[in-house]
Amino acid sequence: MGKAELFEQAAQAVVDANKDAAIDIAKQAIAEGIDPVEMINDGFSVGMSRCGELFDTGELFLPELIVASDAMVSAIAVLEQAMPVEQTSKKLGIAVVGTIEGDVHDIGKGIVATMLRVYGFEVHDLGRDVPINVFVEKAKEVNANIVGSSALMTTTQVGQKALEQALKDAGLRDKVKTMVGGAVCTQRWADKIGSDLYAENATDAVTKLKELFS
């Protein structure tokens, strides 16, 4: 089978959330001597991107996205056996995410956390109503390079500004990229408080972080 055809089959196996097929295709790729990294980037990851687009248009849903990512992760585990050690288990980034102190809305933030994991980030989800100092302490503990906060209310949004300052005070601001999201956030707000990124939704968060860290 040609490489292009195998890449397409790999992508489709992820879209179909077919774990068995994904594993078989990964094994076939190894047997045919295809570069595992190419197989991941041009095959399985393409499938995951398609899943993201389908999720964005409401044609694929959160549980299906997770099962699809499970198929991809299983295939990658097979491919990693044929990869040099230094290329394996490479996370794109380490993210600390949470809903800002005083705010209990977390559905959107939960979706962002799930999708970042699916796309290869190590994610530490602090939950909801997270005090500013907890963001900072966790970022230090896990050596994060991404700190993301969500706020759904104008009253709690100010916590995102406080988080920027707290990261500066802790000497961490230059070591992380900050990202803000939530219904009341806008690019203008991100610019105003000095946040590196603004994410309109989960797909936007993944796209922007992948661009930054790939």
Binding site: T57, G58, E59, L62, P63, E64
Partner: peptide, 21 residues
């Protein structure tokens, strides 16, 4: 604008709710 499929499989009157516009 569309129904978020956090469950993904729930229906009403035989119609899946997730993804409806």
């Amino acid at each position: 604008e569309f129904v978020l499929g956090i469950h993904g499989g729930l229906e009403y009157d035989g119609v899946r709710l997730a993804g409806l516009y």
